[in-house]
């Protein structure tokens, strides 16, 4: 494992912890898209089907369990927790997210590395992760006023993607040259989606003003 991959995993982990911190201690999920969180839960569920059959390392297994557990508990909090669910801005979160799954599934059936259930589900999870942030970005755009923790959560998610791209570049030059078009293309698209957000995030940070997206 290289430093970029580790940095990517750690920012990913930090993003989840920031979100859980917000939900658990402030008992609020204001500004958070349930649709995006549901898609992330599906992403992890379909990607880690090999959790108990394909052992890679203790690190991998633990991280997978953390991502699975945290994504499902976040969804549970927003839907079921009697205090947290009241802060959910349902009217701002209207993205038809399950419609995003069909094109990903069809694409995974036709464009994959091997036509087996596990492989197609894994590919599906890669495609779905690339666009799972969309409902959240739409919600940000609508609410415009973003609290610090929500801003940090999305910033850390974007940082995770950026580090993964550096990781792939590093792996390309240091390992045997296998070409991973599926992960690369999906990963780059996913990272580009954060570009706009990053721009405004750094602007607000540089000028030391509250993060606010233009209408």
């Amino acid at each position: 494992m290289n430093i970029f991959r580790l940095a990517g995993d750690m920012t990913h982990l930090a993003s989840v912890l920031v979100l859980l911190l917000k939900i658990h201690t402030i008992k609020s999920c204001a500004g958070i898209s349930l649709k995006t969180q549901e898609l992330f839960a599906i992403v992890f569920l379909t990607r880690y089907l090999d959790l108990f059959t394909n052992f890679i390392s203790i690190y991998n297994t633990i991280m997978k369990l953390i991502f699975l557990g945290s994504s499902f508990s976040i969804v549970w909090y927003i839907r079921r927790h009697r205090v947290v669910r009241r802060s959910y801005d349902k009217d701002q979160d209207t993205f038809r997210h399950f419609f995003l799954m069909w094109p990903c599934l069809i694409l995974a059936i036709f464009i994959n590395e091997k036509f087996t259930l596990k492989e197609v589900m894994w590919t599906f999870s890669i495609y779905l992760e690339a666009i799972a942030i969309l409902p959240q970005l739409v919600m940000l755009q609508r609410t415009r006023n973003i609290d610090n923790l929500t801003g940090q959560y999305i910033f850390l998610l974007g940082a995770y993607r950026a580090f993964y791209i550096l990781n792939w570049i590093y792996r390309y030059f240091t390992e045997e040259h296998y070409v991973h078009w599926i992960t690369w293309v999906a990963g780059v698209i996913q990272t580009l989606l954060y570009g706009d957000f990053f721009y405004y995030y750094f602007q607000s940070w540089k000028n030391n003003v509250k993060l606010e997206l233009p209408a």
Partner: peptide, 10 residues
Amino acid sequence: PKTGSFKDEL
């Protein structure tokens, strides 16, 4: 390309 060699990522 070798199948599954990126399966060590999360």
